[in-house]
């Protein structure tokens, strides 16, 4: 009984400090086999399967404390992006609870919020408000954002004339000025030149020092090794390993 109270108290207390707390999270979604009504009608006639329930995440429980830097690794289809969607709160768990305490900033994939016809300047504002910044805040930070992106001369040019490196630099620069409590990084560092990658890693280390929680999804095990103190290794929607990076990577390479 005392032990039970102790455990409960402990869970409550730790959850209060945790920025991310998942308990028994299950995620199902329906995979549509037909993308059009025409295909659907055909499928109904020949009694094909129309929807398939996919069990994407199975009984996930873990907590992430403030300031931790967690790498999420696993093969394709292991549930990494589904997990990221739950943390970003764009998707909700089928059962169980996923508690997120703090402002989440995703590093959006290349130019998701960008419009090619608009100038760099217009896109900074557009992307900024999409990420949840106030317009007045972006105005204040604008010079810093442009400087970090090293795009001073090009900022009033439509971004369709940008190279992919410039594109990415601008996207990254907007996202880091959001001052997030939880930063989600999904392979974004794969693009761009090495000098800028270096600069981003430096910035991310700065974040780490300042106590920002970072969730890092990558196929580049080197970056994970250098950067994360902890990895969560997913396989077929289950946590295979959750702990220190070195051991997790060993397990990953064995498979």
């Amino acid at each position: 009984m005392i032990a039970w109270i102790y455990v409960t108290m402990y869970t409550i207390m730790t959850h209060e400090h945790s920025v991310i707390a998942f308990s028994n999270v299950e995620k199902y979604f329906f995979l549509q086999h037909q993308k059009t009504l025409k295909e659907l009608v055909q499928a109904l006639f020949i009694k094909q399967k129309t929807l398939e329930r996919i069990h994407a995440l199975k009984d996930l429980s873990f907590t992430v404390e403030k300031g931790e830097c967690v790498g999420i690794i696993g093969k394709n289809g292991a549930g990494k992006s589904t997990l990221l969607k739950l943390i970003a709160q764009v998707s909700s768990p089928t059962s169980g609870t996923a508690t997120i305490n703090g402002k989440v900033a995703p590093l959006i994939e290349l130019g998701a919020g960008f419009h090619p016809e608009l100038t760099g300047r217009e896109n900074v504002f557009l992307n900024g408000v999409i990420l949840g910044m106030k317009e007045s805040f972006i105005k204040k930070k604008f010079a810093d954002i442009v400087q970090f992106a090293e795009l001073n001369e090009f900022i009033d040019m439509p971004v369709k004339y940008y190279s992919s490196g410039m594109y990415m630099r601008l996207a990254f620069s907007v996202a880091i000025f959001i001052e997030p409590e939880i930063l989600l990084i999904d392979e974004i560092l794969a693009v761009g030149d090495t000098a800028f990658q270096e600069k981003c890693l430096q910035k991310m280390n700065e974040f780490k020092k300042n106590g920002t929680t970072i969730i890092f999804v990558s196929h580049s095990m080197d970056t994970v090794k250098n950067f994360c103190d902890r990895v969560i290794y997913l396989q077929e929607g289950k946590i295979l390993y959750d702990g220190e990076t070195k051991k997790g990577l060993e397990l990953y390479h064995q498979k």
């Binding site: 992006s81 969607k85 970003a88 709160q89 764009v90 995703p106 959006i108 994939e109 998701a112 919020g113 999409i130 990420l131 949840g132 999904d186």
Partner: peptide, 11 residues
Amino acid sequence: ENGSLIKKIYF
């Protein structure tokens, strides 16, 4: 058209 936004960020 805004699929990549919908997948990444909530509003």
